[in-house]
């Protein structure tokens, strides 16, 4: 028996799945592709430029902070950058995107020690900083109105209010329109269709737990039906309206499911999803802000450690005497 090199000794198991942090992040990027594509189709080249700026800034800032040459690294910065871009209006000035993306990476993530340690969803931290800093560019009548499939159209000249800002106006949009995404809003949030396709891909790959988006959407729908006021034809339609209008879809599928900032226990994830839905509707129905998903998720992020601690599952065959 001749063995040239030395053998490796390690603890079992000796085989590992091919999945890595990088491959998971790449899968998320793939899942975001339909939404990104729709954003470009609906909002034109400005959307593409905004996305490129956001992704590049995020990757560069992270590479500089970590002093790494490989700017893609594990891909998490690119995901943060793209997610941030998708929840910005297409008409937003470039420097706002740069500041938002850099804040997302630094204040949202690296300050806490980088990937795996951040408490809050970095993209949402970036967005909320932009909202309080330059509200004028981020809300109200600045939501871009899409000109479907008119690539090359300068979106900055035409803006309109998000449907959530004035529900009375929202009646002029049909649900199919909202589903496809030909309404005013942030560039990546309007097309429920594209987001759902991405979501299905993520569920198929086993990267997201149905409990979070499920709990989130179900709560929004139920509260929309019960308290929505039925302005959109009937109560059932109002529930649907709340699901497809605004940021619920992108939030439920991509933001609330961010691994690092959400509970790891199955029960905790359900609570997390429901909590997000609850706070979102609280803000939408009784608050002064038109949209609440950003704040809802950030608040639930803050509660995640506590939720995790109170939802430790029983082991298989565990007897019911709470320890």
């Amino acid at each position: 028996m001749i063995i040239n090199g030395k053998l490796v000794v390690s603890s079992s198991p000796h085989i590992r799945s091919v999945e890595s942090v990088q491959s998971v992040m790449t899968d998320v990027l793939i899942a975001l592709f339909p939404a990104a594509l729709m954003a470009v189709l609906l909002f034109g080249y400005r959307a593409l430029i905004t996305m490129i700026i956001a992704v590049l800034t995020a990757m560069l800032v992270e590479a500089v902070w970590l002093r790494k040459r490989d700017i893609f690294n594990d891909g998490s910065a690119a995901v943060t950058g793209l997610l941030l871009a998708l929840i910005l209006p297409a008409a937003v000035p470039w420097w706002v995107v740069v500041v938002g993306s850099a804040s997302a990476i630094i204040i949202g993530k690296q300050v806490f020690g980088g990937i795996g340690y951040n408490i809050f969803n970095p993209a949402l931290v970036g967005r909320v900083i932009l909202v309080v800093s330059w509200g004028g560019h981020m809300a109200g009548d600045i939501w871009s109105t899409p000109h479907p499939f008119a690539f090359g159209f300068d979106v900055s000249t035409v803006t309109g209010a998000t449907v959530l800002a004035s529900p009375e106006k929202a009646v002029t949009f049909s649900l199919p329109e909202m589903f496809i995404g030909t309404i005013a809003g942030s560039m990546g949030e309007t097309s429920a269709l594209a987001l759902l396709i991405g979501g299905i891909w993520l569920v198929y790959k086993g990267h997201i737990d149905y409990r979070i988006p499920g709990g989130f959407m179900a709560t929004v729908f139920v509260l929309g039906v019960v308290f929505g006021g039925g302005f959109y034809g009937n109560h059932l339609m109002t529930g649907l309206f709340h699901l497809v209008a605004g940021g619920v879809m992108i939030a439920a599928i991509f933001m609330a499911t961010d691994f690092v900032t959400t509970p790891v226990t199955p029960g905790g994830r359900l609570i997390f999803g429901i909590g997000c839905g609850l706070i979102t509707m609280l803000i939408r129905l009784w608050g002064t802000l038109p949209e609440g998903v950003t704040f809802a998720i950030l608040l639930m992020n803050a509660l995640t450690p506590i939720i995790d601690n109170f939802t430790i599952p029983r082991q298989f065959g565990g007897v019911n005497n709470s320890a």
């Binding site: 999945e19 942090v21 998971v24 594990d74 998490s76 020690g113 980088g114 990937i115 795996g116 340690y117 086993g206 990267h207 737990d209 691994f259 690092v260 900032t261 959400t262 790891v264 226990t265 199955p266 994830r269 599952p313």
Partner: peptide, 11 residues
Amino acid sequence: SPCIRCAKCVS
């Protein structure tokens, strides 16, 4: 690398 809390191990 650091745990990204994906909870795949839990599932």
